[in-house]
Write a protein that binds this DNA or RNA. Sequence first.
DNA 1: CTGCATCCTCACTGATACTG
DNA 2: CAGTATCAGTGAGGATGCAG
Lengths: 132, 132
Amino acid sequence: MSKENLRKCEGDRNDCPIKDVLYRVGDKWSMLTVIMLSDHGTLRFNELHNLIETISQRMLTVTLKTLEADGLIARKMYAQIPPKVEYSLTELGQSLVPPLMSLYEWANVSMPAIKASRERHQKQDLVAPDNR
Amino acid sequence: MSKENLRKCEGDRNDCPIKDVLYRVGDKWSMLTVIMLSDHGTLRFNELHNLIETISQRMLTVTLKTLEADGLIARKMYAQIPPKVEYSLTELGQSLVPPLMSLYEWANVSMPAIKASRERHQKQDLVAPDNR
DNA sequence: CTGCATCCTCACTGATACTG
DNA sequence: CAGTATCAGTGAGGATGCAG
């Protein structure tokens, strides 16, 4: 945790690993997909689609392609009719799971406090301005 | 790390802490701001603006307000001319730093492999389609 | 079953100007 | 110094239809 290399973050994505990691895992579905694969092991396209019900087919495709291009997941395609494609985490992908889990656990512990704080602020905002 | 509560993530933000935490820390500037405050301690508005050079004044304001509403940072305002406002992490905000750091360190270790993988895929894409 | 292509929307973001 | 207000552009993401 050397503080020195955190002092400043000026170049846009150049000398800022925080931004790098955000652009990797910060999108809407990547983390979720990695977690699902970590939890279930190998999964087929539709199995993922069912597990992450609110994802659109398009975004699942896009997310899987990006994760594959980044070397976080492996894609195994069976040349048969009907097609069958299996996805699983690579070693690199698995190495992401522990840090993800620590964030996940922080969320479980802290979200109640965050939500409570948010509601307190909403109430304050409601009484501050005149009701017009 | 009980697997049971990860099995499915269907309700949009209802029963899915992964999404919760993503919507908190996944935006473009929150993590960066938290890290800066963790690194420097108390900071004034313009000090933050200088440290995160690429952030616009508007987004810094928005980010700070959101983080404050969520109880992650504290805002201390001095009633004087010229105005002076100091921001610092609350305990809740500080509790976010360790998980953030584990992600940060994962990024430092893994980004080279990710970037290499990405470039490999780009080259493959360039030879796959007919050049037309 | 697994995916790609197209269209379309709207929320996030930045630029700019103004205020206490 | 520390914001607020307004406007406008961009691009992530969803809906739909088609294909191998």
